[in-house]
Design a protein around this nucleic acid. Structure first.
Lengths: 353, 353
DNA sequence: CAATTTAATGCAATCGATTGCATTTATTTT
DNA sequence: AAAATAAATGCAATCGATTGCATTAAATTG
């Protein structure tokens, strides 16, 4: 007796870590077949309630853990969804992931997450991994480097449901969930004009990415619709972080270019501009009104607080995941690609009041 | 001819979406066996270079995609790692995930992510899902609600490698990567005292979670070591967000309690306190110096900018993932549990200068 | 050149759950 | 009570890759 306790005390892992229980073990114990056990566990209608109860009890007693992998192999599907995003640690993206995870887990799907780190090569590899893992569907927001749709088309031709969200390629027919970047930009610029701005600069992203191209278009259209003209020398590309925003703002202040407003495609570049202005005692919003994009958490707390456009990240993730699951689970092969457009909401704060 | 082109044009999916190629298809094409093909693809030494080349070419030509699931079933392992965290969309956590994903993907593991949403019940379910998916190992940061280790012990007894990070249970022997919360708190409070504070309040979290308990202890020890005494009426628990910080600060200001410094376990509660002070024209840091915890992005941008403790999220994720993979891949069953302690770095900003 | 070693490949079982079809048992109908 | 129907369970193949052991072919040795 003593020695048994002794062994248990020192090697609990070894002792307890018995081999995994399978449906065959349960079947043997109950004098049934694996098929019956399988059906009982899956609540198949043709199995009597009595046996179901027996099986469930035995499963509990033996501490049975179903082997998802085996089931996946047999079914040819893994009940899992792959997600490819540029980076996880971005406020907006982690919000979308949160929404996605909520929906997928509610529907019994596992979520496989890959970061492309803004690299096309990694993005391609990520997709390969997901295909090899036989995911039921893929959600993707493309990298900044992605200037082709070939890899994505391959996926679609393989018959794997795919939904794009946020950053997307428009030359492929997929469902997608996107922000109305045009409208957001339009609204922001209109607001600046309403506040009296006449010379509004735009700090944009890489215009090969559609979301940034659209913001530029919205900016232009808003100017024109509101009686101002587009001055190409006020449009700056690839200004997305604080440092670049700071640099460009300083460059403008040093030059002869006069501006009284900035619409930035990123809160960070807007912040950079704010800091540059502050250093020169240029009053915000009196001398320059500023609006950013994405409604990063810090925008609320800086001073002056920064006007911005909220993108509803969680909601976007939820819709994207729902669209994908709908497509996965629809019997009829052909689901008409849907585009869900979320209109960003202008949050007016001190920087443009 | 015409008609073929026609068909291709209208139904590319149907045509191209042929059944998945398996190693048997490759074998058949080359007059070999599946075993040989499998070995060739895995670069087995006993297969001649000639056949390897043949197999690889055929694989490419047929657009072969290995079925990871089948391999996983056979191997009993999925080359995947499970991650359980309270929420994805928190700056610190998304940073750790980013680090984790980097390491796991570099080592050929998939990452399965689950959110517990601060619920013990969900945390338990998450673990079940991961076990059913036969993950090779698990990384976990526990929920606020988790007041037991039973579910985690089960995992360990099942022989599944598990590493805790950030929020952890100390009554289970696992490797872990944690912040030196005691030291961080100690440093922060010492800094406040050095700046002349005599009556420092602490806005803490739930003290059943060790990281918060440690911050309290560090706070106390620092007071004592530096010749001040601990006044329990200055310690407030479960004050972790802006609203609560704002509320408690106001309560203090309304009372007879005099304070000249706040060390908060969260940047958000620190911010709430800042806003409350600002409303009453209490000068920061002259009348009250404030330090937060986590170095959230906004801390740099508020004004006055908020001193805080940086937790090195990405590095923490990297270490945790490395520890886990090391454990998974070590041949000898018994790996001595290691604890990696990352010392938070005090970032001194205007709020405590 | 026979005997032995080495290299390369094949055979067949296996991982664990699922599922179409067959079979048995129980129930109902005529 | 025989026949027909329904209900419950069993049989056996299957999903695709891996792997220990056997086998064949080629190379080496004495």
């Amino acid at each position: 007796m003593q020695s048994i306790a002794f062994i248990f005390y020192f090697c609990p892992n070894k002792i307890m870590n018995s081999k995994k229980i399978t449906i065959h073990d349960i079947a043997r114990k109950l004098n049934l077949t694996a098929s019956t056990v399988s059906r009982a566990l899956n609540n198949h209608p043709k199995i009597s309630d009595a046996t179901k109860k027996l099986v469930h009890n035995a499963a509990k007693e033996l501490n049975y853990r179903p082997n998802t992998i085996a089931a996946s192999l047999r079914r040819g599907k893994a009940k899992s969804i792959g997600l490819v995003i540029p980076r996880i640690n971005r406020n907006f993206i982690s919000n979308t992931i949160s929404g996605i995870e909520k929906v997928t887990s509610e529907n019994g799907y596992n979520l496989l997450i890959c970061q492309s780190e803004e690299s096309l090569e990694k993005e391609i590899n990520n997709l390969k991994t997901l295909v090899n893992n036989r995911v039921d569907g893929i959600l993707i927001s493309i990298s900044l480097e992605t200037n082709t749709s070939k890899h994505i088309k391959t996926i679609i031709n393989d018959g794997i449901p795919l939904v794009q969200f946020d950053r997307f390629r428009s030359d492929i027919e997929t469902s997608k969930v996107i922000n109305d970047n045009f409208q957001g930009a339009y609204d922001a610029v209109k607001h600046l004009i309403d506040k009296g701005c006449k010379r509004i600069a735009h700090f944009g992203g890489a215009d090969i990415i559609s979301i940034y191209a659209e913001r530029i278009e919205g900016y232009k259209k808003s100017l024109i619709d509101n009686g101002l003209e587009v001055d190409p020398s006020l449009i700056f590309n690839k200004i997305l972080n604080k440092e670049e925003g700071y640099k460009i703002a300083n460059k403008i202040f040093d030059s002869k270019i006069k501006i009284d407003g900035i619409f930035a495609a990123s809160d960070y570049s807007a912040l950079g501009a704010m800091l540059a202005a502050r250093e020169r005692n240029i009053k915000i919003p009196e001398q320059i009104a500023i609006i950013g994009f994405a409604n990063e958490p810090f925008t609320e707390f800086v001073s002056p607080s920064l006007s911005s456009l909220d993108q509803f990240g969680v909601e976007m993730g939820i819709s994207a995941a729902r669209l994908l699951i709908e497509k996965i689970e629809s019997k009829q092969k052909e689901v008409i690609p849907k585009t869900v457009i979320i209109r960003p909401k202008l949050i007016i704060r001190e920087s443009s009041k």
